[in-house]
């Protein structure tokens, strides 16, 4: 799941200020789950923006709100087409993917990002999310006991821990567990410590040459040559 964080209201208000009619657009999938841009957040942000302009007495903006199922798939954005004529800008509470899909579908309307897309992760408990995957394109979880060192080790190193951990916590962030201590413990538990003893050659960063595109369809030549 993609995890995002709302931008500060100050920034949101600032990026909205050049426009008059602004649609606040939520996304019903990932950002709903992480409390950043679902229908409820849309209405809260709407209220805050209204409150902000009520207090400053600025040239009034007209905010409206709507939430689509998923901003990243352009078919879901069809529903916005009739509204498009009446708006000057869209404040998207979708992730970066949503913002770009919108920009593609509505080339004449500025799309304003309302959230900072943070990472791909999982919810630990209500209100706490942890990063779990960096989409490195070369998954090695089979050897690391299902714990990703590329994501969860601050240095993303592959051949065991650095010497920085204290009390099992990472040198870069004392709140977080050292991934390599976790990996070690889990491999011991699984009886697969040999996986950690193995040498891991340098990563193949060619797999994440940007921008990436994934193609699973096969080119089929018409006519049975």
């Amino acid at each position: 799941m993609i995890v995002a964080e709302q931008k500060s209201m100050e920034e949101i208000y600032r990026i909205c200020s050049p426009y008059e009619k602004i649609l606040i657009l939520g996304c019903g999938t990932c950002v709903t789950v992480c409390d950043a841009g679902g229908e409820k957040e849309v209405s809260i942000i709407h209220s805050v923006l209204d409150a902000a302009q009520a207090r400053t007495g600025d040239k009034p903006h007209i905010f409206s709100e709507y939430t689509v199922k998923r901003q990243c798939d352009i078919e879901f954005l069809e529903a916005l087409k009739d509204k498009a004529g009446e708006i000057d800008a869209i404040l998207s509470l979708g992730c970066g993917i949503g913002v770009q899909s919108l920009a593609e579908v509505f080339p004449d309307i500025p799309i304003l990002p309302g959230v900072n897309t943070a990472f791909m992760g999982a919810s630990r408990e209500w209100g706490v999310w942890d990063e779990r995957c960096v989409a490195c394109g070369d998954c090695r979880l089979v050897d690391t006991g299902g714990i990703c060192p590329i994501t969860r080790c601050a240095k993303g190193i592959l051949n065991g821990p650095c010497a920085g951990a204290k009390g099992g916590k990472c040198e870069a962030n004392k709140e977080m567990d050292c991934a390599w201590v976790l990996i070690y413990q889990h491999l011991v538990h699984l009886g697969h410590l040999e996986r950690m003893r193995q040498y891991y050659p340098p990563r193949n960063f060619h797999t994440i040459l940007r921008p990436r595109r994934l193609i699973i369809k096969t080119e089929i030549n018409p006519g049975g040559k």
């Binding site: 500060s8 209201m9 100050e10 208000y13 809260i44 805050v48 409150a51 902000a52 207090r55 400053t56």
Partner: peptide, 8 residues
């Protein structure tokens, strides 16, 4: 928190 960001 949000209100503080708009100066309330």
């Amino acid at each position: 928190k949000m209100l503080a960001q708009i100066g309330i």
